[in-house]
């Protein structure tokens, strides 16, 4: 029983990692950038929802809507203002810029909301019996929402016009442009999707873990990044699988070895992947075009 409950916990946190990992992966796929500011989008989404609900007493669904909207605007703005001018520069400049943005947002949040944690009230209180276990509604909602979003996303990427355009742009920008695809818009759209997923992940995370603080995005973002690398960065099913695996590994470590070791295990996985198969589980062993 405890094994099953640890696995379900793992799937719950894993689906949050997966939602965030999708943002890393899609952005990497299209602009070859590891967007280190992505974790901070989660934090912004969490604070936005918290502020609207706890301070302005807005209904939760409106607060969540505005949190998504704010994250989308922020993600796209960062892309246009900070990354786009560097698109043809060395990748290290992009990476450093991303880290800079991340620090900027973290410090801004500390300034605005102070460093001490705030309490986020669970939007889905209560629990239900499931296979002899008592599962919180937050867990069930988290898993259900994530699965639906991931299915919708993969349908969008494989079947819709914009999804095909995203794949075309990630393969060859100049030629995509020749086809009449507005490459800049397509890239912005990718950032928008990633940011929206991060906002939703933020709210789901807060429902189970209740505390928010300015640095919350870094650890969550970092683990999701490990998930994306584990599955194969740039590959959408890879991000999903990676997310679930990291979640389950982490949860099993917490349950059966030690809570203190959980983070070490996650980063241990990153090291192992980088040593054995840097392209990740689904990655082709193809040399990267530079």
């Amino acid at each position: 029983m405890t094994l099953l409950s640890q696995i379900i916990n793992g799937i719950q946190i894993g689906s949050i990692y997966a939602l965030v990992a999708l943002g890393y992966s899609m952005v990497y796929g299209i602009v070859k950038l590891i967007n280190f500011a992505h974790g901070e989008i989660i934090m912004v989404g969490a604070y936005c929802a918290w502020y609207l609900i706890a301070r302005l007493n807005m209904p939760a669904w409106i607060a969540v809507f505005f949190a998504i909207l704010l994250c989308v605007i922020l993600g796209v703005t960062i892309e246009i203002v900070a990354y786009k001018p560097l698109r043809n520069s060395a990748r290290i400049s992009l990476l450093i810029t991303a880290i800079g943005i991340s620090l900027l947002l973290q410090n801004l949040a500390q300034l605005l909301f102070k460093a001490d944690p705030r309490m986020f009230a669970n939007l889905f209180p209560g629990s239900k019996p499931f296979l002899g276990l008592q599962l919180t509604n937050a867990t069930l909602v988290t898993i259900a929402v994530s699965v639906v979003l991931m299915a919708a996303l993969s349908l969008m990427v494989s079947k819709t016009k914009i999804g095909k355009a995203m794949r075309a742009v990630s393969e060859d920008k100049a030629i995509a442009e020749l086809m009449g695809i507005n490459v800049n818009t397509t890239i912005s759209f990718t950032f928008a999707i990633g940011s929206a997923l991060a906002a939703i992940a933020a709210v789901l995370y807060c429902c189970s873990y209740s505390q928010i603080e300015p640095t919350m995005g870094s650890m969550l973002g970092l683990k999701a990044f490990v998930a994306a690398v584990l599955g194969g960065i740039g590959i959408i099913p890879g991000a999903v699988l990676g997310g679930f695996l990291i979640g389950v590994f982490e949860s099993l470590t917490k349950g059966f070895i030690s809570s203190n070791l959980a983070d070490a295990v996650v980063f241990g996985i990153l090291i192992v992947v980088l040593l054995i198969k840097p392209t990740g589980i689904f990655g082709k062993n193809r040399r990267e075009k530079v």
Binding site: R167, E171, I175, E177, G180
Partner: peptide, 24 residues
């Protein structure tokens, strides 16, 4: 005029080395 606006005007460019989208 930006490259992506020229298709609409009736200009097509079949590039050197074909450059089809290999993963599509």
């Amino acid at each position: 005029v930006e490259s992506f606006k020229l298709v609409k005007r009736g200009l097509a460019h079949v590039p050197e080395g074909r450059r089809i989208f290999l993963n599509l």
